[in-house]
Design a protein around this nucleic acid. Structure first.
Lengths: 189, 189
DNA sequence: TCCATTGTAAACCGATCGGTCTATAACTTC
DNA sequence: GAAGTTATAGACCGATCGGTTTACAATGGA
């Protein structure tokens, strides 16, 4: 009888991946244990609050990751470089379109009602930090707001399309197209 | 003991609405009966194959609706008018962003694997019929293909954003922006 | 070496799952 | 109005759900 010892820092991403693949309702405890190898005992030891606590911690970790790697750079660093970094990080994070956005998925079903605040905050932060970077690079307030919203929405839509069509090139094309529009906006003719 | 009699043509949209709100896994039989008032007896009388058959028929009906109201007009009618009709129908269908796209939701979770062909066909048909209309209006093959894909993806992304931020104006702005880009593409300077 | 702590494994629980079945209400047809 | 058909209501089923509990393996400090 072998015994595997996990640390919480390791298991949150493992569970996140199951939620990503199966959705909140689809990720049953037995499927989480069978896909991760983490027994129920361990899961409830780390997350006494059960599935809901797991999902909450996953959302918090995703938010943290984006704040550190995308949102804060957009707000603090040089706009052009920060936007370039955003595209690099986003492409890596979503595995070039082969991985979905869990926050977007939660927004679509009734899970949204449970985590409404977190879901809204994630997208609001993203749009707002991108908008701020565009403004700092010289774009007008209106065009920056519009372009930021379209870009974040475009990424979400591209993830759906890439997965639906099972063709990651859809995601690559969307990223390239939106990146170009941002570049043009930041470097007016 | 009151007895309500349903017809299949009526109940498919009712069940579809429950799937839309709760997702495939979230739409349990008891929630379907409690939200629609249709008893289990009736549900299994109309859909002997259970949930899977319900979802399949719902997807088929959605596909049919889009073919009739959006895809075929894009392919057959005058391009400018057909595109305008598309925006009207899309805005009405998605309740100006307050209703999600069930096909897009199915694409995100593991339900996709069950209905992969239908999900892919829906998006492929949409992109392709829009692309065809753009080409017929004089757009180049490359820009038509790119714009069609971006538009369909943009709608999906806007539905996610609108729901996540609980702000339907996000959807309205996305529709307006994409409509303008299409108009420009169809009437080159 | 013993004990407390940390964490794992799995049996177990009531509730709910998707799905089946029976009884019967309401229409059709004659 | 009897017979047959269509559709509804809801009891019922085994399986699985999210969650709890028990037993104990491993580790580290005394």
């Amino acid at each position: 009888m072998t015994r595997t010892v996990f640390e919480k820092a390791d298991i949150v991403p493992m569970i996140a991946e199951v939620f990503r693949e199966l959705g909140y309702e689809g990720a049953t405890m037995s499927r989480i244990t069978s896909r991760t190898g983490i027994s129920k005992g361990s899961l409830y030891y780390f997350f006494p609050g059960g599935k809901e606590e797991m999902a909450a911690e996953i959302l918090a970790e995703i938010e943290e990751w984006f704040v550190r790697n995308v949102f804060e750079p957009l707000e603090r660093e040089e706009p052009q470089a920060a936007v370039q970094k955003m595209w690099r990080e986003v492409d890596a994070y979503f595995r070039s379109g082969q991985r979905i956005c869990l926050v977007g998925a939660f927004a679509l079903d009734e899970t949204r009602d449970r985590f409404a605040a977190k879901v809204a905050e994630y997208f609001r932060s993203w749009i707002d930090s991108l908008r701020a970077a565009l403004v700092r690079s010289g774009a007008s307030a209106e065009s920056a707001a519009a372009l930021a919203e379209e870009t974040v929405g475009g990424i979400q839509g591209a993830l759906i399309l890439a997965r639906a069509l099972r063709d990651e090139r859809v995601f690559a094309r969307a990223v390239a197209s939106h990146a170009e529009r941002i570049t043009k906006c930041m470097q007016p003719l």
